[in-house]
Design a protein around this nucleic acid. Structure first.
Lengths: 366, 366
DNA sequence: ATATGTTATTCCAACGATTGAATAGTCTCA
DNA sequence: TGAGACTATTCAATCGTTGGAATAACATAT
């Protein structure tokens, strides 16, 4: 006959039961070490276990989940997995999940809204019990979607503040980050600092800029408007490299003096460094550059990039922890104040920033 | 009562059936646009669809898969997702899968063998119909495991040649890559070329080295043994940065002349560039550096890294295609010659390599 | 002698969706 | 007028696993 070479012709509980001479119940009980297995004779247990082993039995997750009414699964929906930013985040999520019984199901929306929606639906159908959304990049309004999900499934967003949609959010303290970056440059003696602001649509941009301004006004530093540019909105992280490159070119063309560039993120910083290099300026000798994020490559470029680190691993862990908690304690009325979780950023000093040379006015203009 | 706030209290087919006044069969037939739905009255269809929509019905993937005996799922097992190498690969896989009905389930083994095994088992239990293993990094013998999987599930490995275990493998033509890299440096006039070979355990290392030697012997170029070092085995890609850094330091300490470094991969190249920079040499003015892989960051560093590109997107697509084919045509006796799929590498010229300055012997020794 | 408890194992009804077979009603054509 | 075809819908079995209830044998306590 050989009707179909279905991918499903596998050893089932019944097969094991038949082969071992016990009922499926007994086999199930033994193999799951269910409470009732206390009463099963040791010989029986051993025999069943051995048979199952020999036959290569693997329980069918579908049947099991259907019956148990749980999937032991957490969905991890990533907007753009090619963003280095999110990799450590994933690691954090995995770590937090590894000791639990939950399996993370990672899905990449490839920065496309339609895919995001489709995959979200698929995750719901697959009955994920919780959802971590890594919203690293733009996307104006995932709001309605996530709102849908949130009423069914405990959801936490990392990287964007969606608390106004009543979704728990884990973000870095962007304002503090901007503040720290500015403080660092200032401490090194820089006074003429160019700023590459993030795109308008990103919430982060404004917060970092607020931090920058706060520090500037605290120490009475003037921020030259012509040395402040804003990245265009962009659909992927790498385009912020081009943004940094072009805007820095613009700075150079103004012929205004500046000894440091504060970039929106590490990619922007890389773009800035490229522009500086092209114009014959060296980093950090002629101009310091500071980034934001601390993506993995920041440490391996030459010079290594000084940057404001987002504790991505920890953010991933926290997001996961929040989902797990929501799963454990059903519906503890969470007030809005509980929703936002802000993590502290951290300055990572490398070689792209350096103390300004006091005397020589060198390296400040072209 | 409120027995349990189970994550599974969802709208079922029966609920929709009750609400719409038709049987579950009818609802199922309509919602799936099954063949029989030809005979269902248009009004009925509309009514059912509307009801389902309104109630927010999502079919339960478990029940469906159990009954249909298929999971519509392809497992993607990644050894180390933090390796930039594999991101484009994932994209390729996703693209190839997007127009099909299959959902990729991405799992990261975090470079740990025990996790790899555990997740492999989980994927089997979840009845993935096919398996793409992204074996970017070391791992001496996944062989036995994948061998198990292969007899149950169509499996393709990307990034390692496991054909001796009768597993279909997609790899870049490493020998050709080594050859191209050498050829490029030679064409630029470099004659004293230092080589950073990959770790011994990696199959790639030897193949690339063979290509390097083949070119060298074709043009009668001498490869100075003291300017040839081999990376130590390492557990993660970033450590090859350190390897490149230290070994290059070693080259410099020999005080032997060299005008170019051929690095095992892009991370090694980055390490080499850092070492050169530290010793006051500039890239490419004083020394050219060529990498391998073309990881995303190769284009955004300054200088951009000239490298041998692995067509990772295409490799991912091909691997997926192979799995899908195996799924479509059951058991066409694949001979061993069919198993290996080699993709052509490609030279990507950027700024880290440059024509050697003919006259000045400068930049060749310290 | 009956109740109670312990040990050892099995019965059987779900879980939610799918689908081949069955049931009807309507229409067409010889 | 009834055979055949088409339309419209439902029945009922099934996928593999689980777990509460049931069975049954035996031991101990009352």
């Amino acid at each position: 006959m050989a009707k179909k070479t279905s991918p499903f012709t596998r050893v089932t509980l019944q097969d094991v039961a038949r082969a071992s001479g016990f009922s499926t119940s007994s086999v199930s009980i033994v193999l799951n070490e269910a409470p009732l297995s206390r009463y099963v004779a040791v010989d029986t247990k051993n025999h069943i276990r051995k048979t199952a082993q020999e036959m290569g039995y693997h329980p069918d997750a579908f049947a099991r989940s259907l019956r148990r009414r749980r999937s032991d699964t957490i969905g991890v929906l990533v907007f753009d997995i090619s963003d280095p930013f999110c990799i450590s985040l994933l690691r954090g999520i995995e770590h937090a999940l590894y000791q639990t019984a939950y399996l993370p199901i990672i899905i990449d929306a490839d920065n496309r809204r339609d895919q995001f929606e489709r995959y979200l639906e698929m995750l719901i159908e697959r009955r994920v019990e919780g959802l971590v959304v890594v919203a690293n990049w733009l996307f104006a309004d995932i709001d309605p979607l996530s709102k849908i999900a949130n009423n069914i499934i405990p959801t936490v967003v990392v990287g964007r503040d969606l608390t106004q949609n009543l979704i728990q959010s884990v973000v870095v303290d962007n304002e503090q980050g901007g503040f720290l970056a500015m403080q660092h440059l200032h401490a090194l003696g820089h006074r003429r600092i160019a700023v590459l602001r993030g795109p308008e649509e990103m919430n982060d941009s404004m917060r970092r800029w607020l931090g920058i301004q706060r520090f500037a006004s605290e120490v009475g530093l003037h921020l030259e408007p012509r040395l402040t540019s804003q990245l265009l909105s962009a659909m992927d992280p790498e385009s912020s490299f081009d943004g940094g490159l072009n805007l820095t070119k613009g700075f150079i063309e103004t012929r205004l003096k500046f000894s440091a560039i504060l970039a929106f993120d590490d990619f922007t910083a890389l773009g800035a460094m490229r522009a500086l290099w092209k114009s014959g300026r060296r980093v950090p000798e002629d101009c310091s550059v500071i980034g934001f994020d601390d993506i993995p490559l920041a440490s391996v470029t030459t010079p290594g990039i000084t940057t404001i680190r987002q504790p991505m691993m920890d953010m991933g862990k926290l997001a996961t922890k929040l989902v797990l908690e929501a799963l454990a304690s059903p519906k503890v009325g969470s007030t809005i104040t509980d929703l936002l979780h802000t993590m502290p950023p951290e300055l990572v000093q490398r070689d792209s920033t350096r103390k300004i040379l006091a005397k020589t006015g060198r390296g400040i203009t072209q």
